[in-house]
Design a protein around this nucleic acid. Structure first.
Lengths: 202, 202, 202, 202
DNA sequence: TATGAATGAGAATTCATTCAT
DNA sequence: GATGAATGAATTCTCATTCAT
């Protein structure tokens, strides 16, 4: 009777606890003043003891890093889901999909995104989602390499990422009056498209 | 005839102390690990007592905000100095000046800029430099309004600001291998120019 | 049959800590110069860490208030124990019991009583003992209402409380040479008795 | 020309400064929260520099003591003014005058009286007013020594002082509902009178 | 004398982390 | 594994007092 391996349930329970802890961390981080962002408050919110946090995370920073990883993975998933990587269309359409995907990813939990940006300083290679997104954008642009004016594709990819991130991020999070409009997405698409296909003057 | 103007000793001394404190704050913020960013360390570095910090700043956050204000003012000054606002040239030249100015402003103290970005969250209206820069960019674009495709100048100004900030910031601070090149500035100028003068496809 | 009742270890431990902290607070308050009345000294004396104080008391003032509550409860207990409330005797005897009880209560820890008086300002309704004592005195006087000249029993109760407190307090704490005598208690009893049964002159 | 002694004006000015400082001290003490009772706030309120406070008072405690002295002198003056010491009347009238005087003295600045009570721990010999008042009460009672039952006049004087202080103090400062009545003064007079002339039972 | 900037010891309070149960 | 009481180093901030001007 003891032949049934009890491993999975145990791990499943661990995973549930980890998840509950990360949920609480995200919640406190986004809805409470910064001085309440501490392990005791997180534990209380999660319904576990402080000790349990340290069972799964060596320290507070690891907790934040884990949350960041989870979030960036979710963002990459969201982008994939919208089909930004599937291709087959013309450049403008592909860019439209990309921007749509970027908005979708940011809209999932904008406040959390903002806080993680502030608290975690990582290069893209440090977290799973970052690298995946970079790959996807690279692939997308590569499919249209002949339309793209600039010769250095790596640099163009990087600039595209930065512009996309900056504009979408700002549109979703800063909510300036100038941007409260349904055409924002298209404006950003145009910006990227014209940049990619620019005829350098003179 | 003892014409040496004896500057008000009171204000001069106070100002010197404030200045020394802000310098020390910037120094600790940029060259020390975050756990050393505390008022005692700042005071020691500044060569004053902790009490003096609290004579001029109600709390630690105010210190950071004051530093942010000083820095953003210096950035606006740097941009003005480069002559981004003087105009008289064609759009491409004006944009080149603007980007040159943005690089100059970021290069003055890139590390400080990065840390302040991370620690102080303010809208542009909340700090002196932010509004001034926004005005300058708005004026610059307004001079070329007939060349600019997009009808909404306010939104274009805002997008230009965000793109400039994102790209220059990234180029100076993240230093990715793709960007370690002398042509970065020109690439950004082209990106902006083509965006501003884009012929929206059908 | 291991009948030893294992008291809830959680509450028992907490209660012990709280108790130890209050004991130390009382000790420092009464035997050390006022500048040593601070949380670090209290913690050291209590044999716990400062953190433990703040686990149970939100701030220093709360610590003082808790001590006041404990002390006033002990005083009310002492008065009850002496049987001031049991009654059955004539007014003079009842008053004698009351004064005896008041002396007993003050003599338990006169120095602490003095310091708490000085540091905590509370109305009788704000602390547990105050209200109980007031009730007991009221009940005592009510039993002899026909002997008491003054019509307003509430006011008489209040005056009795104030006079008792003032005279006993002074006799125990100020220790003036005029009072270093075994007849003090009886003098106070007479004072109260004659006041209560005064024949107001024309 | 320099023969005219400049001493008086100088001293007069000093006295004025001292007075202004004590006024400010009293004001802060009575109308501000305790954490604002500090020398810097007092100096600002007084319109002088902190340095000036230390010109006239060696430390903060001396400031408080000086205020206490001034206040107790004013109280003694008030009592004298009401004529409690003039005598010539019967015991009841004299007591009525005394209580009237005590009320007048307390009503001058009840809040200050309360705070000084809490902050300054002195015996009556330590401050000018205390001794004077004790003398006056002693003299008053001595005039009626043949009516007073208790043999030990020193003790009776002391008890009278304590009872008066406690009851008047409470009536003026604690303002309990039981005491909000115009007959309080007379009630206290009766209490004292009956105590002084008590026929000790059996 | 008066000023008020500067001092700095010291106090209250926090919170990441540990560990006995 | 889970708990949560206990820890204590570290941090922010205060304020009586000094002293150069």
């Amino acid at each position: 009777m003891t032949a049934i391996p009890r491993k999975l349930p145990r791990q499943a329970r661990s995973q549930a606890t980890v998840s509950v802890i990360l949920d609480a961390t995200a919640h406190i981080l986004t809805t409470h003043p910064p001085e309440e962002f501490n392990t005791n408050v997180i534990a209380r919110k999660a319904g576990v003891s402080v000790g349990s946090i340290y069972q799964y995370f060596p320290n507070k920073e690891a907790l934040l890093r884990a949350l960041h990883d989870r979030h960036s993975t979710e963002m990459a998933d969201a982008i994939e889901l919208v089909g930004a990587a599937t291709g087959g269309a013309d450049l403008h359409t592909d860019l439209r999909r990309l921007i749509r995907a970027a908005f979708a990813a940011h809209e999932a939990d904008p406040a959390l995104h903002k806080m993680l940006d502030q608290h975690v300083t990582l290069t893209r290679a440090d977290h799973p989602g970052g690298e995946r997104i970079h790959q996807m954008v690279g692939t997308l642009l590569d499919r249209h390499r002949d339309e793209i004016t600039h010769g250095d594709l790596a640099r163009v990819t990087w600039m595209t990422m930065r512009m996309t991130e900056a504009l979408v991020h700002a549109a979703v999070l800063d909510q300036p009056p100038e941007f409260a409009s349904p055409t924002v997405e298209e404006d950003i698409v145009v910006a990227l498209h014209s940049f990619l296909t620019a005829q350098v003057p003179g």
